[in-house]
Design a protein around this nucleic acid. Structure first.
Lengths: 358, 358
DNA sequence: TCCAATCGATAAATCGATTTTTCGTTCTTG
DNA sequence: CAAGAACGAAAAATCGATTTATCGATTGGA
């Protein structure tokens, strides 16, 4: 079709102009949809574009504007389903608006987060969707403020005085989990999480605890958190069980914690839900195919992404209203990993198939 | 420190020039490391850069070169650990070389794949790392060829006459799986996969089958594949078991297949490895914490990413040698989901805890 | 001492678009 | 019928860098 001798230098707007017998300015106007061009000339431009297979160079096109048609996205990691689909959604939404999404992984490092942001500032991105490693008070958000960048904070964040925020309604979802566990008769529950992700994890903890104690004031809610990474959490958990603590249910405030809990159950030969119940914040595809299926809180990825982009583009277009703080409702999927206590609690070891690992 | 009245218009190279009392050309040379500049002037440039907090605008900088310092990466999806960590690795490697990685998800669509590629061509990317949806013969690779783009094909690809390719050594890994299963005494094995991802999946199948039959010529190897998506695979599998077929082991050629197999085992109340053994191509974090842990082939993500980038940059720098086809060795992790047949095969239903789902 | 070669640095062209300014026609209107 | 408004399009400025061409000042050798 229209590509003749491609592979060489791509045609520029001037090539189109000369083929159409008009000036480059006219070509630009036609392509931008300006109506003050004689229909005859417009047609000749379209023909030339078609014949040469011309496409606008987005880089050159962006040169003259202060804000380029680029959106930056910074996620703590790409390896999980949650952030993976978040990036996919954001990419689609940016694309719909004619923007290019440039995604980067901060790899759970605030230092890297700031570096990436500086690089995005170099690119003069129109806006940034930042999922901070820790919370809204990190150096990255400060950098954005200091340089007058427009952006939206998502996920591990509750509200901010400078930026719009969008996250899952951790508090409500955790309260829902509490209702289900307490309703099932659990009165000694262990909650595990990473404290460093302050904002949301705290909301998850408080949402759970307040609802649980409201429903059963004598319930015992133990909490194990680790400041830094997931490994200390694992050893704390091991110590906890090693001391003889025997909660009838565990609620993990984050996906990695759910994995840690499961692997500790394995070590001890405990099975869900007979020996102990388990609910995790954050769903994953595999959780419905394992035996038992793992109960989980599903975060509304699409809604978060869509709301974040809406707010972001409102800002890009100049809205200067006060920052919004959106909470999107979650869905709690009760699965087989949750049962009632006393159905055969703590049989003391793998009673079939596998011996407990050393 | 050096940012004074940031938030306004960013300083350009001309601002630096006037502050340093030299021309813009000199600034450019100093920053590029050209040595034909008087040390005194160089120092003044560095001082001005520091004082103004100047940083090069990568967009403007790229304007003059035919190939911009941008690398495109196209993955079929971002939701899985494999492609998620692939993007993370690629991003780091591009960054090391001073390039920006722009990643996009083709969402398992060849049409979208081609559109993305066209957009990357518009950006005049220096190179593309393409993980094709299907194989090396898709429209995306054709587009790259037609437009003289430089690129590397990874993952679902074996070799190509125009581009370097890098993928996991599916054949060898599958042969290894065959050795383990046959070695464990399995003589009736079901292999499941998606045929559309022709190149690699076929290699996985053949690697397995040839080795299995070499070790036990009378072994029965059944194969179930689906052309399009994963759902037909599920129903085929259901039919297969429904007909009364009772292999003692299942080897899934892809992650989604492993999930499908597990969920079908659930429906029937079968447990691994007593009722049936399971091995999957592609590892995931959760596979080692479930009960039983799922045996899997681990793909060498880092090596694939690193090799792909090496090859790509060699091409970017002008190498015109014949295309290379790299195969990186995998690791096979035998876990509890594999046992010997006859340990209690097909007890007929969940013999503890959970009744089979309807 | 004078011309040429060398050195260091500046001016100007360039990349490929967009946007503003300028300019020539045509159409109104007094 | 001439002055001014309206229209359409071309010319030129602009974005922020890099690169080439140019230029002036030393330094060299003859």
């Amino acid at each position: 079709m229209a590509q003749q001798e491609a592979r060489q230098r791509r045609p520029s707007i001037h090539d189109v102009a000369s083929h159409a017998g008009v000036s480059a300015a006219t070509v630009s106007k036609v392509l931008a949809g300006v109506i003050t061009v004689k229909p005859e000339n417009a047609q000749r431009v379209f023909d030339a574009v078609e014949r040469l297979g011309y496409r606008v160079d987005p880089l050159a096109s962006d040169m003259r504007r202060a804000k380029r048609r680029i959106i930056g996205a910074i996620m703590p990691e790409f390896e999980s389903e949650f952030f993976g689909s978040m990036v996919t959604e954001l990419e689609g939404l940016a694309e719909q608006r004619g923007y290019t999404l440039v995604a980067a992984s901060s790899r759970e490092s605030e230092a890297r987060e700031k570096e990436i942001l500086a690089r995005m500032h170099d690119w003069r991105v129109a806006g940034v969707v930042l999922a901070p490693v820790r919370n809204e008070h990190g150096p990255a958000a400060a950098f954005m403020k200091a340089h007058g960048m427009t952006g939206v904070l998502i996920d591990r964040v509750l509200s901010d005085d400078a930026f719009d925020t969008v996250s899952a309604d951790s508090f409500a979802a955790s309260a829902e989990v509490a209702r289900m566990l307490i309703g099932n008769g659990h009165s000694h529950i262990l909650v595990i999480g990473l404290a460093e992700q302050a904002a949301t994890v705290r909301a998850r903890l408080e949402g759970f605890r307040s609802q649980a104690l409201a429903l059963n004031p004598s319930a015992r809610i133990d909490v194990i958190t680790s400041e830094v990474s997931v490994e200390p959490l694992r050893s704390s958990l091991r110590d906890y069980f090693g001391r003889g603590e025997r909660p009838t249910a565990v609620y993990s405030l984050l996906l990695k914690g759910t994995l840690v809990a499961l692997s500790e159950f394995r070590r001890r030969g405990w099975h869900c839900p007979n020996d102990i119940s388990l609910v995790g914040f954050d769903d994953a595809e595999w959780m419905q195919v394992t035996w038992p299926a793992i109960a989980a809180v599903v975060q509304p990825v699409r809604q978060i992404a869509s709301e974040a982009m809406n707010l972001l583009f409102r800002r890009v277009e100049g809205d200067a209203g006060p920052p919004a703080a959106r909470l999107e409702p979650c869905q709690v999927l009760m699965r087989e990993s949750v049962g009632s206590p006393g159905n055969g609690p703590h049989s003391g070891g793998g009673d079939r198939q596998q011996p407990p690992l050393s």
